[in-house]
């Protein structure tokens, strides 16, 4: 069971999370909403094991896929190589399949710097889908997508969430409405 219990996190004097608790189900999307600086990204970083100093209990375990807000694609690797990077050697040939899911199969040999912002976001999603962890963390993953691709990606996330939990940080209420998912507000 993935859960945070009474978690408090400070940056200097400022508490970004105060006695925060959350329990994720076996599957489904949990949306985290709230204004800037309310601790949404910090919450994802704690779940990903990237923040070590906090009070409270966190249990995750297993493999975690994470679409970072700043994407973190490797600039010297092609789109295909960026996806293959997170795959086991036995599965590396499958990378193209995930590029197809996000509509980037014709950009397999392109470097991330040559792709548009929306394409880069789709590539980061492809990498996360390919990794197929036990938990998927999404930090504003649709912000640069046009309407058509946003809907496609929301559908892909909904499909993905049928078998494992997904935590989605978003500013867009329509994402929550479309996914018809549980949402948690951080203030």
């Amino acid at each position: 069971m993935i859960a945070l219990s009474h978690v408090t996190k400070h940056f200097g004097e400022k508490a970004v999370l105060q006695d925060f608790s959350l329990q994720l189900g076996e599957n489904g999307v949990t949306a985290i909403v709230g204004k800037n600086g309310s601790g949404k990204t910090t919450l994802l970083r704690i779940l990903a094991g990237l923040e070590k100093k906090y009070a409270g209990e966190v249990s995750t375990g297993g493999r975690i896929a994470y679409v970072f807000q700043d994407l973190r694609l490797v600039p010297t690797l092609t789109a295909l190589e960026n996806v293959a990077l997170v795959l086991d050697n036995t599965r590396r040939a499958e990378a193209i399949r995930y590029l197809r899911i996000v509509g980037l199969e014709n950009e397999a040999d392109s470097l991330p710097g040559k792709l548009s912002g929306g394409m880069q976001q789709r590539l980061a999603l492809a990498r996360a889908f390919a990794y197929g962890g036990d938990l998927l963390l999404l930090d504003e993953p649709f912000s640069a997508l046009d309407e058509e691709w946003k809907q496609n990606m929301l559908d892909a996330v909904r499909d993905y969430a049928q078998t494992r939990p997904v935590v989605l940080v978003t500013h867009d209420a329509s994402d929550v409405a479309y996914l018809n998912c549980k949402s948690v507000r951080l203030d």
């Binding site: 994470y66 490797v74 990077l85």
Partner: peptide, 20 residues
């Protein structure tokens, strides 16, 4: 930032050396 990404995705050390 890329090292954090590699940590989260558990990219093996040798692949990390080659790619990053």
């Amino acid at each position: 930032a890329l090292l954090e990404m590699a940590h989260v995705y558990r990219i093996p050390p040798m692949r990390r050396v080659r790619a990053l």
